[in-house]
Design a protein around this nucleic acid. Structure first.
Lengths: 210, 210
DNA sequence: GATTGACTAGACTAAACAGTCAACTATTCA
DNA sequence: TGAATAGTTGACTGTTTAGTCTAGTCAATC
């Protein structure tokens, strides 16, 4: 009953695009409405505030993009270390595509939004959602590390701690790439990741294709 | 002639504190004035805008804090790998102190500000200053790596590329620490850094005190 | 002790902003 | 067909914001 609309989805996409291309604080509700071609009244029909929209947009991005991608790349049918190196090569090519398309390296919207909102009490809901998404992603890393450990391809370690370190390395290099607007920084990501997790053979595995 | 004032310094400190504790976009000129106990008229007497203030505050922080610290820790009189591990242990303890003092891990203001402003054309001056500061810091890493290479304590590599990777690892873990509000993440930083730069002996060197 | 230059005070303007609301429109199902 | 549901519209309110401007205060110098 009643009519249907994709305005809420348009708003979520517009919000992510704008926040990604600028920043959370620098984007206003009016900006988002304009980009989505939706009027203010409709915005507040679907969302109660900018942070409400951000939380829902993040979850939407996760289920429609991130999860399917990670499920494929981190499939148990793939060798543990290849899961990681394949994903990291994907990050490099994707950022290069983004730069070609938008004229600039944009990095990762989750990290950018997280850095900006995590200390702000009023944006607690956004920070919580971001921490949840980080935790989800770490689980992929962690189980790959655990599997690598079981097959003996990495040195003994605490998989949970290594997953945090790996996430840090990846995000850190992506942040650098964004700030310096340079994707070449990401080229060595697979090799560096294998070093961080203590792979017994580094350069060879990093060079192997998926 | 005329009177002297420390209002501009108070404004710079207030700005850095607020931006660090929240975000660039979330802090207004009024907020900064209030915190510094300076009136609007004085603000615009010293600075032409928020971004002008940010640029000057960053440079002030560099010369009064960052540079002296780095000059000491990266002194040529210290063994190359010890320079790095000492600095990384310092980062860990400093973030722990910040958490104790402010109730929260705050991470690195330069990275937070850089992530937020680098894509925004209107804040180009801030982005440029941040890139300049990153380049300065990388030079300390790079020369330590070069010295380590000369003494044979790390595997053959391109020092410039390794310096970027090292900076990425460090910043990435600090960003994680900020978002997750957890300093334990930083404990393994020395060991991880040695792995990334290809040190021939990792765990021992990381544990060694400066 | 008068002059000059450095700084302060805070009222003011105009624009941007978040959020509200009541009237309106399109779709669906009974 | 028509009532109920789902979504749209844009004008409106009050607040916050950046930035300006004028009148003034204070301290050094001659």
């Amino acid at each position: 009953m009643g009519r249907t609309s994709d305005a809420n989805e348009r708003l979520m996409n517009a919000a992510l695009d704008l926040i990604w291309g600028e920043s959370y604080g620098g984007v206003t509700i009016d900006d988002i409405c304009k980009r989505a071609d939706v009027k203010k009244g409709s915005f507040y029909y679907f969302f109660s505030s900018k942070s409400d929209l951000a939380v829902k947009a993040l979850e939407h991005m996760w289920s429609s993009e991130s999860k399917p991608l990670l499920d494929g790349m981190f499939s148990s049918s793939v060798e543990p270390l290849s899961r990681i190196t394949t994903y990291l090569r994907h990050i490099h090519t994707r950022q290069a595509e983004i730069k070609a398309k938008y004229g600039r390296v944009l990095g990762c919207p989750v990290v950018a939004l997280g850095t900006e909102t995590c200390t702000c009490e009023e944006e607690k809901a956004v920070g919580d959602k971001i921490r949840e998404m980080f935790a989800r992603k770490r689980r992929y890393y962690e189980s790959a590390i655990r599997d690598a450990l079981a097959e003996g391809s990495i040195e003994p370690c605490d998989p949970a701690a290594k997953a945090v370190a790996l996430a840090g390395l990846i995000e850190g290099l992506i942040v650098q790439a964004r700030i310096l607007d340079d994707t070449e920084i990401l080229r060595n990501l697979p090799d560096l990741a294998l070093r961080v997790i203590g792979a017994k053979t580094t350069s060879q595995a990093a060079a192997t294709s998926a």
